[in-house]
Design a protein around this nucleic acid. Structure first.
Length: 423
RNA sequence: GGAGAAAUGGCAGAGUGGUCGAAUGCGGCAGUCUUGAAAACUGUUGAGGGUCACACCUCCGGGGGUUCGAAUCCCUCUUUCUCCGCCA
């Protein structure tokens, strides 16, 4: 959520910046400002009445104490109308505040200056590419064929148990999953991230905190009986650790990592591109989350990008990094870098990580603050990234490391797997 | 799931209708002393709105009510603890 003060001071700049998202926010922001003005006006009136009422009450109390009951009762008579007025203004204030809140929730984050304009993923800007694309044999198979051939993932079994998009990993496939999780967590921990195990279900307030709610309910599984949501990413529970907190400036940088399954309804996505592991309702992911001083958040984002690069280098997977364009940028993000692994057998890039700086947008919703050198509360910056999302990394490994003798396990994973080949 | 108790500032913990945004202790911050540190001492220290700055307003788990006036009384919800039941 954008800060009111920022909107007041930089309305025109915000409107220009939001054009990169192909949004004309002019009337929205004007409405926000006029509601804000109204809110302050009503608040001031209400405060005045309450101040008078408080004063009268004190006087009445003193009169009663000194035995002047008659005078006290005279004063009492005057409080009735004040009460009615206060109620009117209070109701108005509540209405205006709620309207204002609703509008603020509709404004996405302001894109960073470096975000290119554009409307679809085709407009994303490739900024880096590394790793050799292997030359596979003529009869190279996509991962869903490989999964079947070596009996390591059973998609049909998942359909039986839960439905499409819930694969069952078997034998070495399951072990490889576990190895990847452990390897990622170890890499993150070595880099200074503290490992956390968090709930996989969150309440509504947490959904609002990180920006999944309102509006994106449809993307999450909702447990209506208890009004809980299955997490679409560890970002939600891990970032919400900091909801309603004031952290110590000395504690920066705050770096957390966590493994969780992720649940996404992915309503409406069908077709060839969602085959196999490409798009699932349940998948595993290791996430990194940082809480940073505003002055340092972009350096922190660069650090996260370097960290993810390091992992992909060790896995020896060919990858590229994209700077997302305005149209592809998530609602809450100011700047996002996507990592894509090249799937040789499918001849396409697969997104395996996304690292974002949310600046103060989530912090404002979360009420996540720190005290600056003057002792004033300021919103911190939040960031997160995947390191990494499992299924497509798995797909990339299966496809790129296939040989006629089986699938070779990347060297760094062998100690975690306990085997060096799937055959 | 049943019965009872409780929810107050970073933490602990007073406060049962009026000058209480809230005693006290711990912690934090600043200073004195010290070569430095510790100890001791002194001061300071909740959040939000509002204002150029004050004033002023709101917040004692959430919501509602009684009253001129509520941390304090009533209703309701949530959470925690104890006991019982069930259970990995």
């Amino acid at each position: 959520m954008l800060q009111l003060q920022t909107i007041r001071e930089q309305k025109d700049d915000i409107i220009i910046a939001l054009k990169k998202r192909n949004i004309d926010a002019t009337s929205l922001l004007n409405n926000v400002l006029s509601l804000d003005e109204k809110r302050r006006d009503v608040q001031t009136k209400l405060d005045g009445i309450l101040a008078e009422s408080n004063k009268l009450s004190k006087e009445i109390g003193m009169l009663f104490k000194s035995g002047k009951a008659q005078e006290a009762n005279d004063l009492k008579a005057r409080t009735g109308s004040l009460k009615e007025e206060a109620k009117t203004f209070q109701d108005e204030l509540n209405t205006v505040t709620e309207e204002l809140q609703t509008l603020l929730y509709q404004i996405p984050n302001v894109p960073h200056i470096s975000v290119p304009s554009g409307s679809t993923d085709e407009d994303n800007e490739e900024i880096f590419r590394e790793g050799d694309i292997p030359k596979l044999a003529e009869n190279a198979l996509p991962h869903w064929e490989l999964a079947k051939k070596y009996d390591i993932i059973d998609f049909e079994l998942g359909v039986k148990i839960a439905g499409a998009g819930f694969p069952v990993y078997k034998g070495k496939g399951a072990r490889l999953q576990r190895a990847l999780i452990a390897y990622f967590l170890d890499k993150n921990t070595e880099a200074g991230y503290t490992e956390m195990q968090v709930p996989h279900l969150v309440n509504e307030t947490s959904g609002y905190g990180t920006g999944q709610l309102p509006d994106k309910e449809g993307q999450m599984y909702h447990i209506t009986a208890d009004d809980l949501y299955l997490i679409p990413t560890a970002e939600v529970p891990v970032t919400n650790i900091f909801r309603d907190t004031i952290v110590n400036e000395k504690d920066f940088p705050i770096c957390y990592t966590g493994y969780t399954p992720c649940f996404r309804r992915e309503a409406g996505s069908y077709g060839a591109h969602v085959r196999g592991l490409n798009r699932l309702h349940q998948f595993d992911k290791v996430e990194i989350v940082r809480v940073e001083h505003p002055n340092n958040s972009y350096a922190a984002l660069d650090g996260m990008v370097e960290h993810i690069k390091d992992i992909l280098r060790e896995l020896k997977l060919p990858y590229r990094i994209l700077r997302l364009c305005g149209g592809d940028l998530g609602f809450t993000a100011a700047l996002t870098f996507d990592f894509e692994v090249f799937s040789t057998a499918q001849d396409r890039w697969l997104e395996i990580s996304s690292a974002s700086n949310f600046e103060a947008y989530q912090a404002n919703r979360l009420k996540l603050r720190y005290k600056d050198e003057n002792g004033k509360s300021q919103f911190a910056h939040t960031l997160n990234g995947s390191s990494l999302a499992l299924p497509r990394v798995l797909a990339g490994i299966l496809e790129n490391y296939q040989t006629k003798d089986g699938i070779i396990i990347p060297k760094v994973l062998v100690p975690y797997c306990g085997f060096d080949k799937i055959d």
